[in-house]
């Protein structure tokens, strides 16, 4: 991580807890760059997270108030913080299983209320911390600790879900698209309403090794190959889109 971003990390934190090759380190870096670019006041910012690898991005690393909560409930805790003290910047950083599976109900209702909360959902398509079980975001056919013959259920389209629930800003990018992702994070931070950024973040340890992406590099390459823009997607047939992950800004109330 660049030296000038160190001011945003707690001095007592010496290293991140993530596996080698995990995408969450890249996301952490981009997130703090966005904070730095926007000159966000960390003293007035509360980072709320749930349970899982991604929940450890802010807690205990970020040099701000951090609230590391229960599995699935980050948005409910965040709602209490924001509603009682609207002057605080409230950002939720957590994983796909946490925010959209066990926490799915809170996600749609938080989007419906359209409070000024920014949600960064690190989507690694699997439960990493608990050992690689299927998530509500695992692709069809994915091999996981609980789908040895391949996942038979369709994954959520999180952006469509959150957009439908009423969010003001919805975007999806992969950590392999750092420039666009950082722009989306900055836009999400700036919007004074409910904003949601889904970030594809590779989990080589639990997802990659089970699904024949033998190294972290293979996982990055998979994301690079499969993540396409909305414009590119518009030119492809249904069959051609099968393994693709469509990225971009899906909704921005500001137009």
């Amino acid at each position: 991580m660049a030296r000038d971003l160190e001011q945003y990390l707690r001095p007592e934190v010496k290293s991140t807890p993530f596996c080698p090759g995990c995408g969450h380190g890249i996301l952490m870096n981009l997130l703090l760059r966005a904070v730095d670019d926007l000159k966000i006041d960390m003293k007035n910012t509360v980072f709320v997270s749930g349970i899982g690898c991604a929940a450890w991005i802010p807690s205990p690393n970020f040099n701000a108030d951090t609230l590391h909560t229960l599995h699935g409930r980050a948005l409910a805790f965040a709602t209490g913080v924001k509603v009682f003290n609207p002057k605080l910047n409230v950002m939720v950083v957590s994983g796909d299983g946490d925010l959209t599976s066990i926490g799915g109900n809170h996600l749609i209702h938080a989007a419906r209320r359209n409070l000024d909360i920014t949600v960064i959902c690190a989507n690694n398509m699997i439960y990493g911390m608990t050992g690689g079980q299927a998530a509500s975001t695992s692709p069809l056919g994915a091999l996981t600790a609980t789908t040895a013959r391949g996942n038979i259920y369709r994954p959520f389209d999180l952006c469509e879900l959150v957009k439908g629930a009423g969010a003001a800003y919805v975007a999806r990018y992969s950590v392999t698209q750092p420039v666009a992702l950082m722009e989306a994070l900055k836009e999400a931070f700036s919007i004074e309403a409910f904003s949601f950024v889904e970030v594809l973040s590779p989990c080589p340890t639990q997802f990659g090794r089970r699904n024949s992406y033998d190294s972290a590099v293979d996982m990055i390459k998979m994301l690079q190959g499969n993540c396409i823009s909305r414009e590119e997607a518009a030119l492809l047939s249904g069959e051609e889109l099968k393994d693709k992950i469509i990225t971009g800004v899906f909704w921005n109330e500001k137009g």
Binding site: V48, A76, F77, G80, V81, F84, N85, N105, H106, H109
Partner: peptide, 20 residues
């Protein structure tokens, strides 16, 4: 605030308590 369920209710209460 009326929340979506009791789990959300108590969790938001904890958040608010830490907000002072």
């Amino acid at each position: 605030i009326q929340m979506e369920d009791e789990i959300a209710s108590i969790c938001s209460v904890i958040g608010a308590s830490w907000a002072g």
